[in-house]
Design a protein around this nucleic acid. Structure first.
Lengths: 198, 198
DNA sequence: CTGTTTAAATTGACAGTGTCAATATATAGC
DNA sequence: GCTATATATTGACACTGTCAATTTAAACAG
């Protein structure tokens, strides 16, 4: 009986999540493995099973936590903008892009239903919140009634989502608009806004 | 010595690709496995190694072939539009969406650099071709010089890419614009075009 | 304090994976 | 017909996630 110290961490669940996020951030989604985590925490390979039914449950927890963080960040940042449509939209897209660039693998995990459990209610709710935040801005301010507000919301969401993913997968590099000199990610949102406003 | 028939298929490479696409389409990227393919083809578990160095090489081949197909489809469809900017753009986005909806897992594979080999030249070339096709349309017809043509191209590409992925991951459902009645995927492109034209 | 129940961690096994090395066999070229 | 060469085979290795049985620690009841 050499080691008794590792019995009952008390906070093994938290430590598993922490280690998972480190693996996710540093080595990618595929690198998040039950046994690898257990090894890192110097714990039996089957210990995590007490806290997460299986790998999918663990990934779902990672996705849910990431989603909640992103949603709260979006809402916080948007609340700083005082009712200006253009600024609100830029705030929304900027928050998402910043999150994606800081935590590429978390952002990717968010949207890959094959890893996380799509039946999970908390996960679904967090997703709806993002869309709701966006729709709220547009409903309040949008002046272009030639198309559905929902179409405008979906267009914006798609644009931001697509740009972030293209950046994360390194299909696009950072850059500036040659004409205006502003950052590319701002320029493309402006193109869309020009189609929304007035 | 019971079976001699399986020695030297002659076209094992092709059969591997075919089986891989079936697995990819029906069960997802994760389901594409060397041993599973070998079992399906009633061949030794290590036989595929003669044709694909490793799993990554196989996935790279799948991605490259899919990319080539998509690029050729885009170019073919666009060539039917006679110089009209709006129609050309709709053709571009429609071709991509159609491909994505028909082969969701192929579309996802295309952009996931962690599966395919990002050093692969053919793969990189096919990607550049898509972007080049789009830029070509805009350079020829775009009238809005308030922003870089490249910003317009990136905006369009991002919008289409984002919308397709949101649809494929089932974060968005099919739908129509409530005001105009046209399909959502057309409506959102129109929003962007309104920001590009004039 | 004691005995019992419950939660958490352990070990061990199982089937599966990708990859590599050594071997066997068939095809093609001289 | 002999020899290369390409292709397929078997077997092993180190992994993986998951499950069952077991052991240990903590919590609780009397």
């Amino acid at each position: 009986m050499i080691k008794t110290s590792n019995y009952h961490h008390g906070d093994l669940r938290e430590k598993i999540l922490q280690t998972s996020f480190e693996l996710l951030d540093n080595e990618g989604i595929e690198a998040v493995g039950i046994r690898k985590i257990a090894r890192t925490l110097d714990v039996a390979h089957s210990a995590p099973a007490n806290h997460f039914k299986n790998k999918q449950a663990l990934l779902t927890a990672l996705a849910t936590e990431s989603f909640r963080y992103l949603v709260s960040k979006i809402e916080k940042d948007i609340s700083k903008e005082t009712g200006n449509l253009r600024l609100s939209i830029h705030s929304f897209s900027n928050t998402i892009l910043k999150f994606g660039l800081k935590y590429p693998n978390r952002y990717k995990l968010l949207w890959r239903r094959e890893y996380a459990d799509d039946q999970d209610d908390e996960l679904g709710a967090a997703m709806d919140d993002i869309y709701a935040a966006l729709t709220a801005i547009l409903c309040e301010h949008a002046k272009n009634k030639q198309v559905d507000v929902e179409s405008q919301a979906i267009a914006l969401w798609s644009l931001v989502h697509g740009y972030v993913l293209l950046r994360l997968d390194e299909n696009l590099k950072e850059g500036n608009d040659e004409v205006t000199g502003i950052k590319r990610q701002v320029a493309i949102i402006d193109v869309l806004i020009d189609g929304i406003i007035e």
